[in-house]
Structures are given as C-alpha cells and as structure tokens.
C-alpha cells in the first residue's frame, strides 16, 4: 500500500516526461505516465483489499522460520560469487603483470585461456559451494567439487561450442 502510494505521489510524477494525457496542438494522446499510474493504482487497490478489508490469516503457511535471513545469506553468497567473477580475472592479470615487462590488459586477453575462465570458474564455484554450504549448515569438500564440475559443465555447454557466446563476466570487458 505504501509502495503504491509512493509510486502514485512521488516516483511516477517525478520520473516521467509526459503526464497522463498529452495535448499537442489539437491532438490528444496517451502520455507516458498513464500506464504506470494505473499499475500503481492496482498495487494500491490490492494493498487496501489485503490490509484493510479481509486480511488473509492463512498466509503464513509458506513461510518458514528464519526464511528471510536464510534468503539474505543465499543472496549474499550469489552477489559475492558474481562479484568475484567480475573482478577475479582483472585482479589475476594485475598480479601476473607484477613480474612482466610488458603488462597485459584484461580486456584484450579476456577471450583467451586461461584468463577467460578465471572469473567464472572462481565465482561460479564459490556461488554453488556457498549455497550448498548454507543449506547443509557446513562446508564439505563435496560442495566445492559439485561447484567445479557444474562450472566445467557450463563451460562445455555454453562456451566451447559457440564462438559468439560469452560467459560472465567477459561481456563486460
């Protein structure tokens, strides 16, 4: 309900160029704000119906204790995993460059071995093993192995047969 109100009163008016309807000379047309405004009104109406009229007292059967903190941990592991994927390659190149007379640039080597797989390999394995560890309540070497095998499988499926597909994070460089 609060989100719907914020959308109607703040976000949509401030973040759209045209209003609900636009009149240019004599021609009237639908403005860019109309569709999101109606959508926000639906959210608002749904919120009112849910909160005020007939609150559903049976809606906790899908919730489990500690679900939010568990979800936050999973999200954290995934975000860290993909951040590792994003930065591990450039960091590896930077470390390699310490002992090199002619420094490499990650952008230029991101399509070649071993650089192209460093980020995805480390980040993907971390994300999978981390999520398994959270669910099992401990980190077992088998979780890391599953992560490694899964990453290898994804390389085989997505990368090796196709020249035009890029694994994370190589499209960003």
């Amino acid at each position: 309900m609060v989100f719907g109100l914020l959308c109607v009163a703040v976000w949509i008016p401030l973040d759209t160029d045209s209003g609900l309807v636009e009149q240019v000379r004599r021609r009237v047309s639908v403005g860019d704000a109309l569709a999101p405004m109606l959508a926000a009104c639906l959210v608002l109406l749904g919120g009112i119906l849910t909160a005020v009229f007939l609150p559903d007292t049976t809606d906790t059967h899908h919730a489990v204790p500690g679900a939010v903190s568990f979800g936050a941990k999973m999200l954290g592991v995934l975000v860290i995993g993909f951040l590792i994927a994003l930065y591990a390659g450039p960091i590896a190149v930077a470390v390699y460059n310490i002992a090199q007379a002619e420094p490499l640039e990650y952008r230029l080597v991101s399509a070649s071995l071993p650089w192209k797989y460093i980020g995805f390999g480390l980040g993907g394995t971390f994300a999978i093993a981390g999520c398994i560890a959270i669910a099992e309540g401990r980190l077992h070497w088998r979780a890391i192995l599953i992560g490694l095998v899964a990453v290898l499988g994804m390389v085989v499926v997505f990368d090796l047969p196709f020249d035009d597909l890029l694994l994370p994070p190589n499209g960003d460089y």
């Binding site: 719907g4 959308c7 976000w11 949509i12 973040d15 759209t16 160029d17 045209s18 860019d32 704000a33 569709a35 999101p36 109606l38 959508a39 926000a40 009104c41 639906l42 959210v43 608002l44 109406l45 749904g46 919120g47 009112i48 119906l49 849910t50 909160a51 009229f53 007939l54 559903d56 049976t58 809606d59």
Partner: peptide, 30 residues
C-alpha cells in the same frame, strides 16, 4: 492466495514492464 495479492502482483508486473519504456525521449521510471 487472494484477489488483493493477485492485484498487487499484477500491478507490480505492469509497473516493472513500464520501466525504461514509453514514447517520450526520456525513458520513464529509469
């Protein structure tokens, strides 16, 4: 679960579909 929740989910879906689209030069809700 309910009509209210269904309306909220539908409204959110329509709102998300509106982001960055539209006919103006400025991509709305971006």
């Amino acid at each position: 679960g309910s009509v209210g929740k269904g309306l909220i989910a539908t409204g959110l879906g329509l709102l998300a579909a509106s982001v960055g689209t539209g006919e103006d030069f400025y991509p709305r809700l971006s």
